[in-house]
Nucleic acid binder design. Structure first.
Length: 241
DNA sequence: CGGCCCTAATTT
DNA sequence: AAATTAGGGCCG
């Protein structure tokens, strides 16, 4: 069991009882290998060699970070057997796709470096990563600036038993990716989800938007256990565009 | 155009 | 291992 704490320095949401609540964290089990970094929390899967989920709170202040540092993909020192490496991805035809974006860590050089750990990386289709996925990331940053903070969780989806693998370590290639966002509105929280196939997807965020309930049905866990059930049951795209 | 998502080769 | 350079495409 891992005791989670707020390592990012951002002011955490305080629930009804006044205690600190990590809205971005999903339901998880004690046997998951969960690691805390400055900018994100991840559950690393030693079979897929990818995270099962990566969660973080992105604040407006963090979006205004100005540090500059190139990508420096490396193994996570906090994971005991981090078998994925650069070698698995190079010449594979698949991107080393960030879950928590490098560009959302510009508030700290260390956070930027930690975002390049393979704990935070999945094989992503080049076109999907640069277009459909990036547009959802751009939207997420705009939402953080507009609302002050956005709670984010995303990760891979494996639909087929016989999905493909890459590299000597056999990193599993996801069939889809999910992402769920929650923001504080006037009368509580709003939440929306996205499901994107891991192929040449170029569409707008709206074209991938679904309810968080729909994402949970695919992922098989409660993504925002701190929020009321009704928040996850529906969304109005006017709140997100 | 700058910013963002990357790749690969080369140098130190 | 890290830094630098060169290249590619899309978006606002």
């Amino acid at each position: 069991m891992v005791v989670l704490f707020c390592a990012c320095g951002a002011a955490p949401y305080r629930g009804e009882e006044g205690q600190s609540v990590r809205v971005e964290l999903p339901q998880y089990s004690p046997d998951e290998d969960i690691v805390e970094h400055m900018g994100y929390t991840a559950s690393y899967n030693h079979t897929t060699l990818c995270p099962d989920w990566v969660a973080w709170e992105l604040t407006a202040e963090e979006c205004r970070g100005t540090n500059e540092q190139g990508r420096q993909f490396s193994r996570d020192p906090d994971i005991e057997f981090p078998k994925a490496s650069r070698e698995d991805y190079s010449n594979s035809g698949w991107d080393k796709g960030h879950m928590a974006p490098h560009a959302e860590m510009k508030w700290s050089l260390q956070a930027m470096a930690e975002s390049d750990y393979f704990t935070n990386i999945c094989p992503q289709d080049k076109v999907m990563n640069a277009q459909a996925w990036r547009k959802i990331e751009d939207l997420t940053r705009r939402l953080a600036l507009r609302h002050g903070a956005v709670y984010v969780i995303c990760g891979p989806v494996y639909d087929s038993v016989e999905h493909r693998h890459i590299g000597p370590a056999c990193v599993h290639v996801p069939d889809r990716f999910f992402k769920a966002l929650a923001v504080r509105g006037g009368e509580g929280f709003n939440a929306v989800g996205f499901l994107v196939e891991n192929n040449r997807q170029t569409g707008s965020p709206r074209s991938y938007a679904v309810t968080v309930d729909s994402v949970e049905a695919v992922v098989g866990r409660n993504l925002f256990p701190q929020l009321p059930e009704a928040v996850e049951a529906a969304f109005d795209w006017n709140d997100w565009k």
